[in-house]
Nucleic acid binder design. Sequence first.
DNA 1: ATGGGCACCTGGCTGC
DNA 2: TGCAGCCAGGTGCCCA
Length: 271
Amino acid sequence: MPELPEVETTRRGIAPLVEGRTIERVIVREPRLRWPVPPGLGTELAGQQVKSLTRRAKYLLFGLERGTLLVHLGMSGNLRVLPADTPPRVHDHVDLVLDSGKCLRLNDPRRFGCLLWTADDPLAHPLLSSLAPEPLSAEFSAEYLARRMRGRSVAIKQLLMNARVVVGVGNIYASEALFHAGVRPTRAAGRLTRREIDALVAAVRRVLRAAIRAGGTTLRDYVNADGKPGYFRQKLYVYERSGQPCRICRTPIRHLAQGQRSSYFCPTCQR
DNA sequence: ATGGGCACCTGGCTGC
DNA sequence: TGCAGCCAGGTGCCCA
């Protein structure tokens, strides 16, 4: 589900409601997430104030007085701030009960998400330590990408989704960015021209920024912190549009599978 | 090092 | 109506 824009939308939505609040207690209804919720989490978090809420890749980092809470939403997770007495629904796995009378509630049907705590520098955590640059940072430049693509035979779409090359770009925005750059998803990464790499870096940035502005993309079950869907779906050019006319040239959008993931492209606009 | 495939899970849709 | 099969915003790990 959530790629960078959806995680960032979630962060912006919940930050004003959690920053400065104290966690009174933690309710774990289902600890079996991608990694088990640590058994001592409640003891660790109770009484701690949330100092900051930041994002690294698709992880949310809750900076506490002591240590950091790491949350990943996996494919189907969402976080909402609700009145603490709201009856839990199916797949409401964890609540952080706040001193505001509200709770931060994690819902995740597929349980591919995770909720972990670390006492140390969160960026040194094994799950975060080898992550690539943020796509919206200056570090993600055409020079950088060109260097990382050189000699690689892997398809450009799969490389874009590799978190050791650039983070935050998932299945939707990889297809969309490649459309806007005019590059077919199947091209070998190492064969792109410098002009195409320039276009691709710009397209990744543009698509992610526009999606954040629209509150993310809701395909099925993504909702933001207010329980509302994102509106970027209406601005998708190729994703889940196979057979429909290209918004630029009317050629039917094509679908194919790459590494067990669906890709979409316009055979006319993308070369 | 690189690339490919599988695994983890639930739910919704399709087609027989 | 029932059920099998397939697909879905991610990503760590194992193998060649």
